[in-house]
Amino acid sequence: MPSEKKTRRALLWLGFVLLILFLLSFSLGRYGVPPRQVVKILGTRFCELFAGRGALPRSWTKEMETVVINIRLPRIVMACLVGCALSAAGTAFQGVFHNPMASPDILGASSGAAFGAALAILLGASTRMITLSAFGFGLLTVGLVMLVAHRAPGARLINLILAGIILSSLFNAGTSYIKLVADPSNQLPQITYWLMGSLSGTRLPDVPLAFLPMGLGLVPLFLLRWQLNLLSLGENEAKALGVNTSRVRLVLLLSATLITAASVSFSGMIGWVGLVVPHLCRKLLGSDHRYLMPGSFLCGAAFLLLVDNVSRNLLAVEIPIGILTALIGAPFFLYLITRKEEKL
């Protein structure tokens, strides 16, 4: 395991990479905006927000401002949020279940959210209602899973996983049925598109809405990272060290669920991030959750931001990001696990 000092430095580097990527992303896009104009537009907006008036005379066109502020800004922030949330949830689930295969959809939050979204689309609901319905059903599913696991006798963790699998497949069946009866000329493609995951519909007002549930989930995950370390030692050891295991576990699971449901309801199903990024971080930072958790916040955000940049820039027609995360994530992961250990 890398020494503490090195780990800290790696964490700083991650933050730096994310920052650079974040700033760089604003000048990437199909609509050509010169980087200098991007800086000016953002700078002026920033000044307007804090000082009350623009810093520079407008030397850019209205279209440029629209592109940077209305199209790129919300997408870039949302990509960071969703990436951060998914990988944090993945780290939490992997820690709680002592299982490297755990991913954010293990308790059925994604399947439930997908069902909720498909149902809302079938009923002709508005974009906002689709998001709300997805979020609600995501939480409902995990609630049911916890209820079932609570009532079943035997090992709690195994019960949770089993109940998650069972309810996921139930909701998946529901989603399939909705796809069968949906109108193929516009509802079905909308559902299919939603299931593939995409950040293309992100609008400026979505961003503050997403911040709320994600903040509510991310803060406890950050604060409880030391307890997560103890939990991953094993139930008895943690108890012996004075941790109220069931309460801590409940808070961790609820927080992870909250952010998973929130990110799925805003961006659709984006696989891989929650599974791969925690592993990547473990390679970089070791398995101490005190560093691993913030590391996966940063790394997840950077990874999804990178992939979304490819998604919106590679072709004239958008490529759904859920497809790309797998296409980019899988080979990268393969390289990572086959690579010989070397100095960091």
Binding site: I71, I130, G201, P320
Partner: peptide
């Protein structure tokens, strides 16, 4: 590209372009 409700393959920047 096409729009499905709010989301879609229609890249908004391509549209502006």
């Amino acid at each position: 590209g096409q729009l499905y409700g709010g989301k879609g393959e229609l890249n908004l920047e391509t549209l502006l372009n």
